[in-house]
């Protein structure tokens, strides 16, 4: 049995750190997928969010980074 996380300060800090890690992982993974030729709908489906949401969050950055994006 893993130890119980009894200190709320640790638990709350873990939430903040996990969010930050998830954001960093998402940025890197979406960029990697788009460089590998994935489409927006495929990336969106893999993340479980809408195509509009993933496009809004990442398109500008990837275009400026020079990633050639598939239109569909």
């Amino acid at each position: 049995m893993p130890p119980e996380l009894s200190d709320p300060a640790d638990a709350l800090a873990a939430v903040a750190a996990l969010r930050r890690l998830a954001d960093q992982l998402e940025e890197a993974a979406v960029e990697q997928a788009m460089r590998d030729g994935w489409s927006w709908p495929e990336v969106a489906e893999a993340l479980g969010i809408t195509r509009q949401a993933v496009h809004k969050k990442h398109a500008k950055r990837l275009i400026e980074a020079g990633v050639s994006l598939r239109r569909r």
């Binding site: 873990a14 903040a16 750190a17 890690l21 890197a28």
Partner: peptide, 26 residues
């Protein structure tokens, strides 16, 4: 250290994966 410690409290290692660093523009 705080980032890694906070992740470790829930069993996550920040060093457990390696992905290319995302491009930061804008």
């Amino acid at each position: 250290g705080e980032f890694e410690h906070s992740l470790q409290t829930v069993g996550v290692s920040a060093a457990a994966y390696r992905l290319p660093k995302p491009t930061r523009v804008g």
